[in-house]
Write a protein that binds this DNA or RNA. Structure first.
Lengths: 206, 206
DNA sequence: TTAGTAACTCACCAGTTAGTTACATTTTAA
DNA sequence: TTAAAATGTAACTAACTGGTGAGTTACTAA
């Protein structure tokens, strides 16, 4: 094996990146530490030196993955957008983020299959979800302007929005087979985005 | 080990049931053949006698699981139900089925994480989904009656409906943590059912 | 009885797995 | 300069894993 340059920071990042790919495709159980080491081009010992254990490594991956979502949400520039447009912007954000980050989708799915056991163990401040606030604000603004139905509950809306977006990505393989049609391709995702936006707005508006 | 009664049919069923539980909670990679044997109260050797391999056993489980969904869908008595009511009935069916069969949800998720590799290998006639036909009929009927928007595409509606229902179950653990609220309990599921019905109908109706 | 067979048990293997250790090399700081 | 800390390698281990060879038991039919 060729010698690695000594660079602790880079090595840490390489391990994290390789681990994320391995955990995303095989889950915590299925992932192999030796495979992660090989993928990162690093010796296995360093994984234990930097992260301590397979589980601890998984937790670091989980945190990094949710951090990406948080950053994407934080970039949502809400200035000047009213109720309708803001909801549309949030839907676009989710679709674009999920389409561009399949490893996020996979790891969230693994985490759910594991009853969120590791997510629960993560410090809550690492899981801020700015978009929740955007959705709350958007619904409140829309109601105040008289464009949204006044009886809407902000959390219900947020849940409807998130679930309606997510399942298009999490279930695209089985649905593609059942519908005998490739639902994972960019054009289909774009179509689903349009439909989802229409559905959500029909539900929100008077 | 205590002796088992000789009953090939029962043994097969015990193995299938144990395997489904094990595969649902740990996936194909994480599931242990020894664990399945212990759970079924049967000697591991018999799993290989009856099913040949871990993969073949998984395929049998997959087929049995989708069969349950098919049977539930087939029970949907559509007689006398018009566009609106039929759509409502399909949503109720999905919510009730998914709520009562968490192993179905888990195995579909695992299958998606595995890019539907094993589902694809299953004979298509074992995957009839009668509800697709119901949804098509309901949308067509609603359009003919002038209650649904005429530009609706039947497949888009089916996808919106299925994804909107499924994600409430597949993602309830991570969402419960992020919303700091138990979304997996019966009351919350009922609330989500009501919201989802309202959302879908708002999207379908003129 | 006897023989055939399906259902079953037991003990084992070859390969894999997470995690460890002995030791070499490089960096850092006094 | 040099000692210690950090970073690296490769070989190792104890436990586990899917799968199997060989033999046993219960039942049936001749």
């Amino acid at each position: 094996m060729s010698k690695r340059e000594r660079n602790a920071e880079q090595s840490r990042l390489d391990i994290l990146q390789a681990a994320e790919a391995e955990f995303a495709s095989k889950g915590l159980y299925g992932a192999r530490v030796d495979e992660i080491a090989a993928l990162a081009g690093i010796n296995k010992r360093m994984i234990y030196a930097y992260f301590g254990s397979k589980e601890a490594l998984y937790m670091s991956v989980l945190q990094a993955v949710y951090k990406r979502m948080e950053r994407a949400e934080a970039q949502l520039v809400a200035d000047g957008l009213g109720g309708r447009d803001l909801i549309g912007a949030v839907i676009d954000l989710y679709f674009d983020f999920l389409a561009g980050d399949p490893q996020f989708v996979s790891i969230v799915m693994w985490e759910n299959l594991n009853k969120a056991a590791y997510l629960k163990a993560l410090p809550v401040q690492d899981l801020e979800r700015p978009a929740f606030a955007y959705i709350r604000d958007a619904v409140a603004a829309g109601k105040a302007l008289g464009v949204f139905r006044p009886e809407l509950d902000e959390q219900d809306v947020a849940l409807s929005l998130i679930t309606a977006c997510f399942a298009n990505f999490s279930n695209c393989y089985t649905l593609s087979h059942l519908f005998e049609r490739d639902l994972c391709c960019a054009e289909q995702i774009e179509q689903r985005k349009i439909e989802t936006r229409a559905m959500l707005l029909a539900y929100l508006c008077l």
